[in-house]
Design a protein around this nucleic acid. Structure first.
Length: 400
DNA sequence: CAGTCGTGGGA
DNA sequence: TTCCCAAGACT
């Protein structure tokens, strides 16, 4: 018995008896062998390709990841190729996937694998977790799936599955709850094919032990599930409490010149870090356009005149309600650097395609080009944005 | 520990 | 239309 004292309210890690270990592990593994989805990263044993899938899958759905994973791998086939690529190319390959820090960490980690490990991934979770962007989950996933180390993983799926199987109480983020889940996952990872078993836990959570409407009648470990026995499946785990999204208004300078527009690279930290945008300043909902133009002028070190406005673009992020106001301006002198941005660049639409850019900014750019701001007829269909209108119409484009 | 960081899809 | 999320990491 451990001498460590616990408070009365602390969750005690449920024991995993040898019987229970076997009763869960075997059925889950054979269920996985029969029911696993044919995902492209399950057809490779290349640690680099597996790592890439794990990073892309962070907070992102499988169906979204598949085309990105294939394209990215074709563009950067090896960790060395990724390490030696310019950051702009990497961010461009990540364009539209979100959580862009992942891409910058991916790039840095690739460089460290080359420099510190001679281009070969270290095979243990303990070493992997020292690399940028590797947390406990990703280190365990790569170690177990690519190298067969019996390392545990706990992601959202595993947390849900184990919460139900072992009736683990507590809200997501609760210290004792997390410790309990990792302790359970550590015990269960021990045995044959730890990588497949870890994936079995996730696959089961993703397809059967789902958050809503779990398919308990198809569950291979239903008999051993405490939550099922007690009729508590629907209440475990408790849903996260999420803060309401805050409003964020940005005024963008749409500044055409000789077939180009002015683009700026945002700071590495914060929203859309390191990505390119039409130069933006944060404003309030009430900020008059004239004042927004004034602030863009001083930010860019130029004297700008408002020529007209285009439709605003709205985007819902998890924690932000984003409104992009497009202000078409003219003026001078034309800057090539600014203290407010990492970098400024005058780009044709074609050149801008190669820049890392958020989906919000891509929508704004599509709207700008759709209005023929650069002259001529609306240029070659601005990336037929899946039929949906690029932005809601709040007012007609004006000025000339 | 709580806040931050995106997106497309489904209810 | 609106809301909710999904294979986390970092500060």
């Amino acid at each position: 018995m451990s001498p460590r004292k616990r408070t009365a309210t602390a969750a005690l890690p449920p024991p995993v008896s040898p019987e229970r270990h076997a009763a869960l592990r075997g059925p889950l593994l054979s269920w996985y062998d029969r029911n696993k989805r044919d995902l492209p990263w399950r057809r490779t044993r290349d640690p680099y390709a597996i790592w890439l899938s794990e990073v892309m899958l962070q907070q992102t759905q499988v169906s979204t990841v598949i085309p990105y994973w294939e394209r990215f791998l074709a563009r950067f086939p090896t960790v060395k190729a990724l390490a030696s690529a310019p950051l702009d190319d990497v961010l461009s390959g990540w364009k539209g996937l979100g959580y862009y820090t992942r891409a910058r960490n991916l790039h840095r980690a690739a460089q460290e694998v080359v420099e510190r490990f001679g281009g070969k991934f270290p095979p243990t979770a303990e070493e992997l977790i020292t690399l940028p962007g590797f947390g406990r989950y990703t280190a365990g996933a790569v170690a177990s799936i690519a190298f067969g180390e019996p390392a545990p993983i706990v992601d959202g799926n595993v947390a849900r599955v184990l919460s139900r199987l072992f009736e683990v109480e507590g809200l997501p983020g609760d210290r004792d709850r997390e410790a309990t889940l990792w302790a359970l996952a550590t015990e269960l990872a021990k045995g044959e094919r730890p990588g497949d078993f870890n994936q079995a836990l996730m696959e089961h959570g993703a397809t059967t032990c789902r958050p809503e409407s779990p398919l308990c009648l198809l569950c291979p470990v239903r008999d051993g599930c405490f939550a099922y026995r007690k009729g508590r499946v629907h209440e475990l785990p408790p849903a996260k409490v999420r803060a309401a999204p805050r409003k964020l208004f940005l005024a963008l300078a749409v500044w055409p010149h000789a077939g180009t527009l002015l683009f700026a690279r945002r700071a590495d930290k914060g929203l859309f870090g390191g990505l390119w945008e039409l130069p933006a300043v944060e404003v309030d909902e009430e900020t008059p356009e004239a004042e927004a133009v004034q602030r863009l002028s001083s930010t860019l070190g130029a004297t700008l005149a408002l020529e007209g406005t285009l439709d605003s673009v709205r985007r819902q992020l998890t924690h932000r309600d984003l409104t992009l106001r497009l202000l078409r301006v003219s003026g001078g002198p034309r800057p090539t650097k600014s203290a407010a941005f990492q970098e400024l660049r005058w780009c044709t639409p074609q050149e801008a395609e190669a820049l890392g850019m958020s989906t919000a900014m891509q929508r704004a750019l599509d709207a700008v080009l759709g209005h023929g701001v650069l002259g001529g007829d609306a240029p070659a269909a601005p990336a037929p944005a899946k039929k949906k209108a690029a932005g809601r119409t709040t007012r007609k484009a004006t000025g000339g």
